[in-house]
Nucleic acid binder design. Structure first.
Lengths: 233, 233
DNA sequence: CAGTGGTCTAGACCACAGG
DNA sequence: CTGTGGTCTAGACCACTGG
């Protein structure tokens, strides 16, 4: 009538999932302690801990010392998005990747950019405007500012062959980044680069990359109509 | 000259991060085995394993049995998005949440929906059209289909007070889901519900929720201009 | 076939927070 | 104060896969 032995943490995880799904343990309910479950499952507490920790990371369980473990009442879906280098993204779709630099200049960025990067409004940076293509058709437009104070090496790069995206990844260490997603109507310049109608709804990814307290680069990627970012939960 | 003792997995993680960042270990390089690191750090191999596993999950390391552990050459940014219930999302912004049902009908969904849900094109479902508000202004429009064959209980719900979103979460167990993000121009109906201009660029979240092999519901959320989804990497 | 990561165990101590 | 999860240890076996 009872458990046919749970030998590894994944099978424990499965069993717990089953009980949640079968409503044996209802949302908000307190489940037995690790020690009790270990006894019931006939395995070490460490193994139970591994399984429960995994489920907590997925948002299905709420765990607190002394308070115990509860089934999350309103599980927050944790979507994991893998933001790869654009070249890889295109190649994984089985398409031929292409890159074309439209302009590369040194100048003072708009206030929005210098603010976000937390530098003086008069700070001079490299401005890159480029387009990434898939099988020859425009895939995404890249609008990037690079702080030459933080990355002096960028001044020597033309970014004609190698995109700033990949050059930075290979040459400049970073500590963390902020990413945001939004929608935006295509302006004239973007519409031309993406070969789409003016005011088309574009998918936008903004990324700000830091090395400690210094902003390295801020990039805005505009994706043409039809672009979709997918994930599993 | 050497390590002031690394007692827990988080400090080991910090040290490995430091070495990657300082380029002591370059992208693509093979790092010492867990056993060697454990000896160097003066801790158990388990502890090193925990730290390296954590970094591998973040995409900074590539690990393979026998082949060893390498610094990822092109780290894939793993963005973690927390998709909460809309009500919570609004409340966390410090705004007052509101919900208004626009229509609730039973009928046959468009082919795109029945295809995605893998049911017969003639399958009858509940169709919900509703708007979520923040401080009285439209925040998102919900366009949802619920398979009554899978969730018969939904037929008894009016969804006037409680959004389908929350009712389903509380009452219907699911096993997994697919989420996708895109941009789309506002149609007439959406523009009216969101009180924005026709053809405005809207941020779109599509979610398809499964219970094993049966699709429970498919929902499309349209967010008004200015909406941004943020995350850290 | 041998080296590496993946995992399990039993026991221990600790940090935290509920009562 | 006490119960719970969080973690560390030392040792062991195993699975995978490169050479």
């Amino acid at each position: 009538m009872n458990s046919p032995a749970f030998r590894d943490w994944q099978s424990v995880r499965e069993e717990v999932l089953r009980r949640i799904h079968a409503r044996e343990w209802r949302p908000g309910a307190l489940i037995p302690s690790e020690t009790d479950l270990a006894r019931e499952f006939g395995c070490a507490r460490t193994t139970v801990n591994r399984a429960l920790r995994s489920l907590a990371e997925s948002g299905l369980l709420d765990r607190r010392r002394k308070a115990g473990t509860r089934i999350a009442a309103q599980p927050v879906a944790k979507a994991r998005l893998d933001i790869a280098v654009i070249r890889k993204e295109v190649e994984e779709r089985g398409q031929a990747y292409g890159y074309r630099l439209i302009s590369r200049q040194v100048g003072v960025p708009p206030a929005g950019v210098s603010d976000a990067m937390k530098v003086s409004p008069s700070r001079r940076m490299i401005h890159i405007y480029a387009v990434h293509t898939a099988d020859g058709t425009p895939y995404a437009v890249e609008d990037r500012w690079i702080d030459t104070g933080v990355v002096p090496g960028a001044l020597a790069e033309s970014f004609v062959q190698l995109s700033a995206n990949e050059w930075l990844l290979a040459n400049v260490p970073y500590t963390h980044g902020e990413i945001s997603f939004s929608a935006q109507a295509a302006g004239a310049q973007a519409a031309r680069a993406l070969e789409c109608a003016d005011h088309s709804a574009l998918f936008v990814i903004d990324r700000l990359t830091w090395d400690g307290a210094s902003a390295i680069t801020k990039v805005r990627l505009l994706f043409g109509p039809g672009y979709t970012l997918r994930t599993q939960v």
